[in-house]
Each structure stands twice: as C-alpha cells, then as structure tokens.
C-alpha cells in the first residue's frame, strides 16, 4: 500500500503527518492540509483534494465542498505573487478601489487575472483587518498598510522585476506602505514563499534561510 501523498515533498509529507496528529479528529486537518496540498501542487487541484480526502478518510466531494467554501483556496493557478487589494468599507473610503484599478493596470490584468509572465495575480478581497491603515494590500497574505494607487503600481513593478524568493511584510511596508493600524513592533524574520499563508512550514520561510 502506498501513501496517497508519496509524491509530495518530504517537508509536505512530514507536515501532513503532524497535522493529522494535531487534532482529536483527523477531519479537522482538512483546511491546513489543503494549504499543504496547494503548496505541493501550485494550487488546489483535484488530485490534491483526493489526496487530502484519502489522508483523512472522507470522500473527495466532501473535501471539495470545504475547499470551495473558503476564498483562500485557489482552484486555478495563480501567479507567484498573489496581490490582494481590500475594497471593504474603510479601504473603500480611502481609495481602495483606485489602488485595485492601479494594481490591475500595472499588472495588465482584469480583477482576478494573472499577468502574462505568470508572476502576479491581482484580486479584490473583502476586509483584511487593516482598516486603521487603509487602503491595505496583501502580497501572498503578507500585509502592507497605507498603500496609494501610485505605490501599488510601484509594488507590482517591483515584484515583477525583483522576484523576491520570500515576501517579507516589513520590507514591503517600508517600500510601499504608509499609515499603519498600529506599531508593528520588531521586524518579522518570517515571510511567504508562495501564495498561501506563511504559517508554520507551509508557505513560509525565514529570511536568509
């Protein structure tokens, strides 16, 4: 009998085993496992959902039912950098829609589209909890507050030209941000290596690691 995730990276397999052991009921691991599967396959694929289903002992349909409920599971390929622009009320009041237009223009895409070089996807998102630093943008879920339309264009250009391995919020904030919701404290060494949230080994890397 072979493991359903034999094709995953060693880190992915290890993380999957940790997650399966973490909860009183394996099914609770479905959401974190979907992030790991996204990282392994580039996005949430049918194969990835089937693998997660087999790992936790439910049907693939049940996994898909969960995976399509939440907006952070991407069922189509996205660029290396997922740029999420908030246009909920506080960001809307302070120019979020203009930031979105500018980001789309710079990337040459419609909302939700991916640039021709496959580097940048620009999406509209609802509130990301940065209302005091509106308008806010996330790159691979790393936050930048106080973004303007002009800074948004710079951001897209910088991502496409610099292609950073790791997206570091403090760096982006310094380059493209402004007003913050509150002091961020000490700079974070961790950042995102892919368009999944950088938490634990999935999607995250320490600077210089």
């Amino acid at each position: 009998m072979s493991s359903p995730i034999a094709t995953w990276s060693a880190e992915g397999q290890e993380r999957a085993q940790q997650l399966l052991a973490l909860y009183p009921d394996k099914r609770s691991a479905v959401m974190p496992l979907l992030y790991v599967a996204s990282l392994e396959h580039g996005h949430v694929t049918n194969e990835g959902m089937q693998q997660v289903a087999e790992l936790i002992g439910v049907t693939a349909t049940q996994v898909r039912s969960v995976a399509t409920f939440y907006t952070m599971y991407k069922h189509e390929p996205v660029g290396r950098y997922l740029v999420s622009v908030c246009t909920s009320i506080s960001c809307h009041l302070l120019g979020g829609d203009e930031v979105l237009d500018a980001a789309c223009g710079a990337a040459g895409v419609e909302v939700g589209g991916t640039s021709e070089d496959d580097l940048v996807t620009v999406e509209r998102v609802e509130c990301i909890g940065a209302c005091g630093g509106a308008p806010a943008v996330q790159v691979n879920y790393e936050l930048i507050e106080g973004v303007t339309d002009i800074k948004a264009i710079d951001l897209i250009d910088w991502l496409r030209n610099t292609t950073p391995e790791v997206v570091l919020a403090d760096e982006l904030q310094q380059l493209f941000g402004g007003q913050k919701s509150f002091d961020w404290g000490v700079p974070e060494p961790d950042g995102a290596i892919a368009p999944v949230p950088a938490f634990g080994p999935y999607g995250s890397a320490e600077e210089g690691r």
């Binding site: 439910v58 049907t59 349909t61 049940q62 898909r64 039912s65 399509t68 409920f69 939440y70 907006t71």
Partner: peptide, 9 residues
C-alpha cells in the same frame, strides 16, 4: 455515501 454535496458559497 457522501458523494453529492454543496460546493462554493
């Protein structure tokens, strides 16, 4: 047989 269920939101 949970083979048919809700998708999307």
């Amino acid at each position: 047989d949970p083979l048919i269920t809700f998708n999307d939101r």
